[in-house]
C-alpha cells in the first residue's frame, strides 16, 4: 500500500476497483461543514476503518453512503452506481446488497430475535418458512445466539443486541456491512467477541466492512486500512502499521489518546476553556 502523506491526495487505488469511491464530498449541517471536499476509497474484501473524534461526522458518512441523506457536492459511488443519483427503486435494490449495523442495534422491539433476523428474508424473498428457519438459525449460529432466538430485544444485553442485529444485517448475504460505533459502551469481553466476529464474518463471507469508530485500539487491531477524519477533512490514511509510524502530531495524539496535542477535543469552546485554565497550568 502506498504511503500517503498529504491529507487531500487522491489515493491511487490498488489493483481491483474499489467498492466505494467518494470524491469531493461536501456536506453541511446548517452552516457547519461536516465534510469539506473529502475523497476516500473503500477496497473490496477489506475492513476499512474511519476514525475520528466524536462529532467528526463519521455516522453522517455512513448515512451518505447508504443514501439516507444527500451530499451538497461531490459524488459517492457504490459498486459503480452513484448513490444520490439513483431513484428510490434502484436505491432500494442497491440497499439490499449493503447493510448497516446501527450503534444501538436498532432491533425491532416488537419482534423476537428470530423474527428480527427473518425480517429482511420475509420482506425480500419468497422463501418458505422452513427454509427461512434454516437460514435464520445459520445466521444466529454465526453470531452465537442460536439459543436466544425466542428472546425479545428488551431481554438482551447490549452486546447480545448488537450481535443479533449483526445476524440480521447478514441475513441477505450483503456485499458490505457498515458498522456504526460497534464497540462503544461495551465491556472488554463483548468487545473482544465483536472484534472477532467482524473480522471472521468479513473473511468468511467475503464481505467488505466499514467500521466507524473512535475506539482506536480495537479498531486498529482488525482494520486493513484506516482513514482519520477530523473537522470535515481526512487528516491521514493508511494501514494501521503505517499510521503507527506516522510522524504527524495529530495522528500521534489520536492513536495514543494523548490528552493534549494539535487536536483539541472541546470543539467550539476550546480556546475559551484553555484561556480559563491558563492560570493553573502552564500552556504546552
Amino acid at each position: 500500500m502506498p504511503m500517503p502523506n498529504t491529507p487531500f491526495s487522491r489515493s491511487d487505488p490498488p489493483d481491483p476497483p474499489p467498492l466505494i469511491t467518494v470524491r469531493g464530498l461536501t456536506f453541511y449541517r446548517g452552516d457547519r461543514a461536516i465534510f469539506r471536499d473529502v475523497d476516500l476509497d473503500i477496497q473490496r474484501g477489506k475492513v476499512t476503518a474511519i476514525m475520528g473524534p466524536s462529532g467528526a461526522g463519521k455516522t453522517t458518512l455512513l448515512r451518505l453512503i447508504g443514501g439516507q441523506i444527500r451530499p451538497h457536492a461531490g459524488r459517492i459511488e457504490v459498486d459503480g452506481a452513484c448513490v444520490h443519483e439513483l431513484g428510490r427503486r434502484e436505491l432500494y435494490q442497491l440497499r439490499k446488497r449493503m447493510s448497516m449495523l446501527f450503534q444501538s442495534g436498532a432491533l425491532f422491539t416488537d419482534l423476537s430475535v428470530f423474527d428480527n433476523v427473518a425480517f429482511p428474508l420475509r420482506e425480500h424473498t419468497r422463501l418458505s418458512e422452513a427454509l427461512i428457519r434454516i437460514l435464520v438459525l445459520m445466521k444466529l449460529e454465526a453470531v452465537g445466539l442460536r439459543g436466544a432466538r425466542d428472546l425479545m430485544p428488551s431481554e438482551l444485553s447490549g452486546g447480545m443486541a448488537r450481535r443479533a442485529a449483526l445476524a440480521r444485517s447478514i441475513a441477505l448475504d450483503p456485499m458490505m456491512i457498515m458498522y456504526d460505533e460497534p464497540f462503544s459502551g461495551q465491556d472488554p469481553i463483548t468487545m473482544g467477541v465483536l472484534i472477532k466476529l467482524i473480522r471472521t464474518l468479513n473473511d468468511a463471507l467475503g464481505l467488505t466492512s466499514i467500521i466507524v469508530s473512535h475506539d482506536v485500539k480495537e479498531t486498529a487491531s482488525i482494520a486493513d486500512y484506516i482513514y482519520l477524519l477530523s473537522e470535515g477533512s481526512i487528516v491521514d490514511h493508511g494501514s494501521p502499521q503505517t499510521l503507527e509510524r506516522s510522524r504527524s502530531a495529530w495522528v500521534e495524539q489520536f492513536l495514543h489518546a494523548l490528552p493534549d496535542g494539535p487536536m483539541s477535543f472541546h470543539y467550539p469552546a476550546a480556546a475559551y476553556a484553555q484561556d480559563l485554565s491558563l492560570a493553573q497550568e502552564p500552556s504546552p
Binding site: 432500494y92 444501538s104 436498532a106 422491539t109 425480517f119 429482511p120
Partner: peptide, 17 residues
C-alpha cells in the same frame, strides 16, 4: 420511539420502505 431507536433507519437500510 422507532425513529429514536433507529429502527426506521435500519428498515430503510434493509431496503424496506
Amino acid at each position: 420511539l422507532m425513529k429514536t431507536t433507529e429502527q426506521l433507519s435500519a428498515m430503510q437500510m434493509m431496503a424496506v420502505d
